[in-house]
Design a protein around this nucleic acid. Structure first.
Lengths: 209, 209
DNA sequence: TGTACATCAGTGAACGCGCGTTCACTGATGTAC
DNA sequence: TGTACATCAGTGAACGCGCGTTCACTGATGTAC
């Protein structure tokens, strides 16, 4: 205990990031967190913060990058396991909501970033969303579920899907993580939104523009 | 100048609220604002804050209530002036986006509330959205544009519309108020989202659930 | 394999500052008779 | 219409505290030869 530097390399950095997520999970907004508050939560001396980040925005940005990376990996795997049946939407939504539930703090942080103070974090979240939109479009092409749409129309459709799911995250914000009933409601509602969108896409003709 | 209490009744309160909106308009997040900072911006002595609000959350809540009231009035008028043509969506979106542009700070504040720190503000914004959803459903019934949907399905559709428009507000967040081109892009994109949704609603059958 | 040195990450003390909040005050406005 | 009093809204001084940030330090780890 008396010796310094007993932690593994990178551990302090990780602890700080986790502390930020934990505070967000407790209902705080990222932009209102302070450095001392964060280091206290992380069990680390205040000065240690500066060894890894220049300021809070810096931490937020790095958080977005790392979380985005992890998230993409998870969703790719999830999508690979989805059968090609009509249950596609329900399954995908269920996977996503479950993942959001297991990583509640992460998604709350992302949701905050949508309208957050830091331009950098905002951009980061947007860029993740764009990425999801692209991957979704690729998947739909691959599964040949929506063949008649132009590339631009496909992009619009997928963008709307991603937005809708993202908005559902903010629904989760107001609900206790243990409230299974409410969470299931959100899940069902989200699935219906998506079905509505896909029915729209099915009947969409370019002249409708 | 030397005399106290030269302001009109309620003026200090209004100045504080406007100062909050102004700071949000400058890119700050509401939850990171301080009382002293606010009173400074409002040109008012710090203690004056406590004459009108108990704490920042209190101010936020009152802000939501007042803005919501004003907003509903505006949208009701706007909707009354929309022709019944196929241009319905485009016109409504244009009215909304223009209004958002004219009252940028107000809408940014609302958008922040979607994922904000204050439970009260969050609830307030949600409740406004629910109200919009209901009014929209009434309008659609009245115009007999969507006759075949059950009440529940109608509600889902309108909810999705309101969410989509709300999300567009966060798009506006990252764009300069003078960037006409970008704003027009957001407007067009939003209109297409809504068309997609309405085409979906048109072909929606209850068995699709 | 051993030695010398540079780099890295964690520490505790210290700084000055702005913060939220309280207090007792003052004068204007509203109310009762 | 006039007077007495209560309420309201704005003020400046003061408080103690936690904040962000700097500094010089220490020991562990990595690198060169």
């Amino acid at each position: 205990m008396t010796k310094q530097q007993r932690r593994k390399p990178g551990e302090t950095r990780e602890r700080l990031m986790n502390a930020a997520l934990a505070l967000v999970g407790e209902g705080r907004h990222f932009s209102s967190l302070g450095i001392r508050e964060l280091t206290r939560k992380a069990g680390v001396v205040p000065t240690a913060f500066y060894r890894h980040f220049r300021h809070m925005d810096d931490l937020g940005l790095q958080l977005v990058d790392e979380l985005g990376l992890a998230l993409r990996r998870v969703m790719r795997e999830a999508r690979a396991n989805v059968g090609q049946s009509e249950k596609l939407i329900d399954e995908s939504v269920a996977i996503f909501i479950n993942h959001a539930r297991d990583n509640r703090n992460v998604f709350l942080f992302m949701a905050q970033g949508l309208a957050g103070e830091s331009r950098a974090v905002h951009e980061g979240v947007r860029s993740e969303m764009r990425f999801f939109t692209m991957e979704l479009a690729n998947d739909l092409r691959r599964l040949r579920l929506v063949d008649h749409l132009s590339d631009a129309d496909m992009e619009i459709t997928c963008d709307l899907v991603v937005r809708t799911v993202a908005f559902s995250l903010t629904d989760l914000l107001g609900v206790s993580p243990e409230d299974d009933y409410q969470i299931q409601q959100i899940e069902q509602r989200t699935a219906r939104f998506l079905k509505l969108i896909f029915i729209g896409a099915e009947h969409w003709k370019s002249r409708d523009r």
